[in-house]
C-alpha cells in the first residue's frame, strides 16, 4: 500500500510540474517578440547556407533576432501581403513589383544575382547540351518527351520555369512533365534519381552537386538571370510589423560589408561564387 502512495504522489507531482513548466514556457516565449525580425525567404538562400553566415552577423550588430522562414518565393510574398513577415528576400522580380505596387512592400532593393541553369543526365536524351537559348532547349525536351521535374510550388524558380515554357510556346503537360511540389534541394534529388531534366538556380545546384547524377547542360542565356531583391513589409499597411527591424535588415543586406561577404561566399568550397553582389545596380 505504501508503494502505491509513492506512485500516486509521483504521478501527481508530474502533473503539477507539467502545468508549471507550461506556464513558464508560455510566459517566456510570449513576451519576447519585440526584437524579433521575421524574414520570409526562398529555400535557395537557406539551402546554400548563405543566410547561416549572414544572420549571426546581423544579430550581433543590431541586437535583433532573425527568424528566417524558408518557403518558396510565392509563399514569402504572400506572407508579406498578409503582414506575417517583416522583411522579404526573394527572387521573382515581376511578382515583387506587383506586391510593391499594391503597397504591401516598400524599400525594395536589389541585393545579388546568380543564374538559373538547365541540368540533366549526362546522357542528355533530348540533345540540349550547349544550346544557347533556354526556350529552344525546353522545346527539345518537350518534343522528345524527356522526363522533366518541375518545382511546381510557385517559387521564384518555378515562376521562371513557367516563363521559359511560355517563351518556348509549349504547354508543359503529360507524363513526361512531373511537378514535385518541393524545395530546390529535394527537386534536384528527385530529378537526379529519375534521370530527368530540371531548372535550378546555380547556387543550390553547386552546393548539392556532390550527391547528384546531373550536369549543367544549358547556361548563359540572358533570360536565365536570377535576381534577388530584399524589401520590407510596408508598416503603413500592416501596423503590426517590426518596421525598424525590417528596415535594418534591408540596409544590412545592401551594405558594403555584406556585399563583400556575398561575393566571396562559396568560393573556397566550390571554386566559384554562388551569388554575385548587386547592390546599387
Amino acid at each position: 500500500m505504501r508503494k502505491n502512495r509513492y506512485i500516486s504522489a509521483g504521478l501527481a507531482g508530474m502533473l503539477l510540474a507539467a502545468l508549471a513548466i507550461s506556464l513558464v514556457e508560455i510566459s517566456i516565449s510570449g513576451c519576447a517578440t519585440k526584437e524579433d525580425v521575421i524574414l520570409a525567404t526562398t529555400t535557395s538562400t537557406l539551402d546554400t547556407g548563405l543566410l547561416e553566415v549572414l544572420i549571426p552577423v546581423f544579430e550581433k550588430k543590431t541586437g535583433y533576432r532573425v527568424k528566417a522562414v524558408g518557403v518558396g518565393t510565392g509563399q514569402a510574398l504572400e506572407m508579406g501581403r498578409r503582414g506575417e513577415a517583416d522583411v522579404l528576400l526573394v527572387h521573382a522580380p515581376e511578382s515583387e513589383e506587383q506586391v510593391v505596387a499594391e503597397g504591401h512592400a516598400t524599400n525594395r532593393k536589389r541585393v545579388m544575382h546568380n543564374d538559373f541553369v538547365i541540368c540533366g543526365p549526362q546522357a542528355d536524351p533530348a540533345g540540349i547540351r550547349g544550346e544557347k537559348s533556354a526556350a529552344q532547349a525546353f522545346r527539345k525536351i518537350a518534343q522528345s518527351k524527356s522526363l522533366f521535374v518541375s518545382r511546381g510550388d510557385d517559387s521564384g524558380t518555378h515562376k521562371k520555369e513557367l516563363e521559359v515554357w511560355e517563351e518556348a510556346g509549349v504547354k508543359p503537360e503529360g507524363h513526361w512533365y512531373q511537378e514535385c511540389g518541393s524545395g530546390m534541394g529535394q527537386t534536384l534529388n528527385i530529378a537526379s534519381e529519375k534521370g530527368a531534366y530540371v531548372l535550378s538556380d546555380r547556387g543550390t545546384f553547386l552546393s548539392l552537386k556532390k550527391n547528384l547524377a546531373l550536369v549543367i547542360l544549358v547556361e548563359g542565356d540572358r533570360s536565365l538571370l536570377n535576381i534577388y531583391h530584399v524589401m520590407q513589409v510596408n508598416p503603413e499597411k500592416h501596423p503590426k510589423v517590426n518596421a525598424k527591424g525590417g528596415k535594418a535588415f534591408v540596409e544590412f543586406m545592401v551594405s558594403e560589408e555584406v556585399q563583400k561577404v556575398i561575393g566571396g561566399f562559396g568560393v573556397k568550397e566550390y571554386g566559384q561564387p554562388l551569388f554575385f553582389p548587386d547592390a546599387g545596380k
Binding site: 529555400t43 530546390m184 534541394g185 534536384l188 534529388n189
Partner: peptide, 9 residues
C-alpha cells in the same frame, strides 16, 4: 528535412 534539402545525407 533541412539537411536532406541541403544534400547532407
Amino acid at each position: 528535412v533541412l539537411e536532406v534539402n541541403k544534400g547532407n545525407f
